[in-house]
Design a binder for these strands. Structure first.
Lengths: 195, 195
DNA sequence: TGTACATCAGTGAACGCGCGTTCACTGATGTAC
DNA sequence: TGTACATCAGTGAACGCGCGTTCACTGATGTAC
């Protein structure tokens, strides 16, 4: 049965939201189109009236999730220490579904199609640009290239630490990883020795 | 036809090597048992005389690959800057098959079975312990807990940076990520501003 | 405003395909005598 | 040392299953008159 355009738009949005949640939890590969459709309260056939393919949804949901994460970061910008602490927390490690999409999918993106990788590239470039613009607006000592580099290095550390923490079954080692990354980023320790 | 025990042992080793290469290239999910067997010059049926399941191979190949990476790091230990530079290089980013297994599979491990995650946990614990022992043996200022934290923070940054660099299609942004992480780890820049 | 009808979002069965795993069979290996 | 035979690594067909995608059909929507 046909339904109203407003309802249809809500369904498309529900598919995107379900996809972001499920992809975050289990990655692109381990989630099926039928599960995403069911997560949005639809059957799998309806999926294709909204998206050309699963791949197209992967690209769009990644871009949407990264935009939402960027907006979260922009709101948190005044207190970077609080943002870093929340990012490197047990709560975030356990919250795959609603956590940072980059941490959840970092090593997957490199194996995806050019369409997905292009979406990732655009999103990461936008986030880097936004971080640099914030540094400039705040009149911080580092601007332009240096602010971009600082953002990318911090992001690498946070993304890597959360991925490692999620892989580990021992909660003591997990907490040690998170604390180590936090110390490196927030100046608790210099992180400059050993190999 | 039955073959000699020595030949059979070589086949098992060939399966492990093919698995490490293919898992590094494409991840656990996108590689089939038949491809691994073919990579070792066997048919898929023979696979099950060497491993109980694909999952068991994932666990063992990850543990083996991480041990090999640990040995590579131990040999490179005297010149950490060279190791970091090689890790954060275009060459490593392009060499998924023979690169660091943690960088290739970081965000996958968290979604795998307890068997695979346990293998990852053991391996990461061993690598952290080895790094701490080296720091201690070299009489470096940081020892014990601090050396462990320094290793884990550096690993997080390197793993995250390589994963991000592999995801990006723009080579300029890719090189910027690698340079940013290198600067953060080798002291080229403080990486302490912006959000 | 009321009516007739074209549109099209959603359903669910079906398609083709590839996956991990099993198993009857083969024949070289390696051991018991 | 030579011979008979039990063992078992490897083969390839087959199994059961679940995936992404397609499509004939349904019936509420929304537009033309």
């Amino acid at each position: 049965m046909k339904i109203s355009k407003a309802e249809s738009a809500r369904h498309r949005e529900a598919l995107l939201q379900a996809a972001m949640r499920l992809f975050g939890e289990r990655g692109f590969e381990k989630v099926t189109v039928a599960e995403i459709a069911a997560g949005a309260g639809l059957t799998h056939g309806a999926f294709y009236t909204h998206f050309a393919s699963k791949e197209a949804l992967c690209a769009e949901s990644l871009e949407t999730a990264m935009r939402e994460q960027r907006e979260r970061l922009a709101r948190a910008a005044p207190d970077r220490a609080a943002y870093v602490t929340a990012y490197l927390s047990e709560r975030h490690v356990l919250n795959r579904a609603g956590g940072c999409p980059i941490a959840a999918l970092s090593c997957d993106v490199g194996r995806e199609s050019p369409m997905v990788r292009a979406a990732f590239t655009r999103s990461l470039a936008a986030s880097t640009q936004a971080a640099s613009a914030r540094a400039s607006a705040a009149g911080q000592p580092q601007e332009g290239e240096a602010a971009r580099a600082a953002y990318l290095a911090r992001l690498s550390t946070m993304v890597g630490a959360v991925a490692l923490a999620r892989g580990v079954t021992d909660t003591r080692l997990r907490d040690e990883i998170l604390a180590a990354a936090k110390a490196a980023l927030l100046g608790g320790s210099p992180a400059q020795a050993g190999t």
